[in-house]
Computed example of a mutant assay.
Amino acid sequence: MNRLLKPVAAMLLLSALMACAPLSHRQQNAAVGAGVGAVAGSILTGGSTLGTLGGAAIGGVIGNGTDGHSRRR
């Protein structure tokens, strides 16, 4: 249970920070992506710092690249 406490606390902290700062839609997506990536990286690597940071970086890049709207052709 203690293993899941750190990622949950990180997500709550990220949510609190996002609520306080006026961010653009792209910045919000990047922040959410980084948070989700950090949690996923931490879980997948067993709490490794490198895995957490790598997940945050990858999630931030992916979040920054999404616009939240599906595109139709």
Rank of each mutant, 00 (worst) to 15 (best):
A56T: 02
P22C: 08
G35N: 01
L53T: 08
P22M: 08
T52S: 05
A56M: 02
S70F: 09
K6P: 06
G35H: 00
C20Y: 12
L14E: 04
G37R: 01
G59W: 00
V61F: 15
G37K: 00
A40C: 11
G54R: 06
T66R: 07
A9N: 07
G51T: 02
M18T: 00
S15V: 03
P7V: 12
L4T: 11
L13I: 13
G47D: 07
L17E: 05
T52L: 09
A10Y: 13
G65R: 15
Q28C: 00
R71W: 05
G63I: 05
A31V: 03
G63H: 04
G46K: 14
G51K: 04
T66K: 03
A40N: 04
L14S: 07
V61L: 15
D67F: 00
V8A: 14
L12H: 08
G46C: 13
P22E: 12
A21R: 01
S24H: 06
T66W: 05
A19Q: 12
G41I: 10
P22D: 15
L5T: 13
R26W: 05
G60R: 10
V39K: 04
A19K: 09
N64R: 15
L23V: 11
L53N: 04
N2V: 13
A40H: 06
T66P: 00
P22T: 10
V32P: 01
